[in-house]
Amino acid sequence: MTDHFVTVEAPAKVNLTLLVTGKRPDGYHLLDSLVAFAGIGDTVTARPADSLTLHVDGPTAASLPEGENIVVKAARLLAEAAGVPLAADIRLTKRLPVAAGIGGGSADAAATLIALSRLWQIDLPPERMRTLALSIGADVPVCLAGRPTRMEGVGEVLTPAPALPPAWLVLVNPLVPLSTPSVFKARTADFSTPDPLTHAPADAHALAQALAARRNDLTAPAIALLPLVGEMLAAITAQPACLLARMSGSGATCFGLFADEAAARVAAQGLSAHQPGWWVAPAPLLG
């Protein structure tokens, strides 16, 4: 057996903004979101094998729900689409919290599609790969793109976003899952008008100003379901040098925006001291 293997990182997805702009007849909500990625995430490693196997390790592996892992689903759908045997030994190293609003599962699925495409030496047309990704989950296409992106529709309309400046994030999660369908169901506000970022911010301060003029429409319903979200936002805002605090996705992960690594690491230390039971991770904003 060859020792050839492919390793792909699965960075955390961060919704810098998230507007709910409508609802389809089938119940799916329409979004307008500025999506970026943080320099922390899970890792997918794939090796040749005679059948499909999945091994999961890492600090948050035990919190994965039972049932078919999204990595297995991605592998199965890719093999079917490409007409190749479903055979690979996959190792998923979990570092991101589960059901946390930072696309951990979606990022894992996207990384699996990339890793197995390389391992199996297949090259699906980009549009076919995006369609396959969307069939796995709404956030998988943007995670497959892996760059700052304006995401519209239910996740299928992707447009490259303006370049983002160097900046750092501190991601905070209470290690309490928050159901995405429940958050959307709890939302009662009117639909929002799309408000995309149209110009590249010059620096982290300009980015914070641009984001402050926008919002995450799911914050209020998330706080109603899990008041800890409000507590995290207040704790992040209280950190020295925090430029902006916001919830990502449907929660419960929140993030603080900082101008540099030093400020982010000081804030992370302060938050960890304030609440030792929270998951706190400083990471660069990947621009």
Rank of each mutant, 00 (worst) to 15 (best):
S117R: 09
R118Y: 02
E127W: 01
T112M: 05
V140S: 12
P126L: 03
L134N: 05
T131E: 15
S135T: 08
P141K: 06
G137Y: 01
I136T: 13
E152L: 10
V142Q: 06
R147L: 12
W120V: 11
A133W: 02
C143Q: 08
A133S: 08
I122H: 05
R118S: 07
P165Y: 04
P162R: 11
D139G: 09
I136H: 05
V157Y: 03
A133I: 07
A115F: 14
P126G: 08
P148N: 01
D123Q: 11
L132R: 02
M151V: 14
D139H: 11
L164N: 11
A163E: 14
P160I: 10
L164A: 09
L158C: 10
E127P: 00
A133K: 04
L124N: 08
S135F: 01
A163F: 00
I136G: 11
V157P: 00
A133H: 04
D123V: 01
M129K: 13
R150V: 13
L134C: 04
M151A: 13
I122C: 08
R150Y: 05
A138W: 03
A138M: 02
A133Y: 05
G146W: 02
P141N: 12
I136D: 09
A145N: 02
L164D: 10
P160S: 10
Q121E: 15
T131H: 14
G137N: 08
P141T: 10
I114S: 06
E127V: 14
A133V: 07
I114L: 14
R150C: 01
L116G: 01
I136V: 15
T159E: 15
V140C: 05
P148S: 08
L164F: 10
R147H: 14
D139S: 13
G155S: 05
I122M: 01
G153P: 11
G155E: 06
P148L: 00
R150D: 02
D139F: 00
P162K: 04
R118C: 00
V142G: 03
L144I: 11
G155D: 03
R118E: 15
I114T: 14
E127A: 15
D123P: 00
S117T: 14
M151F: 01
L144C: 10
E152R: 15
L144N: 09
Q121G: 00
R147W: 02
Q121T: 11
L132H: 06
L134I: 10
L164Y: 09
W120S: 11
P148H: 02
P165Q: 09
G153V: 06
I114N: 00
T159G: 07
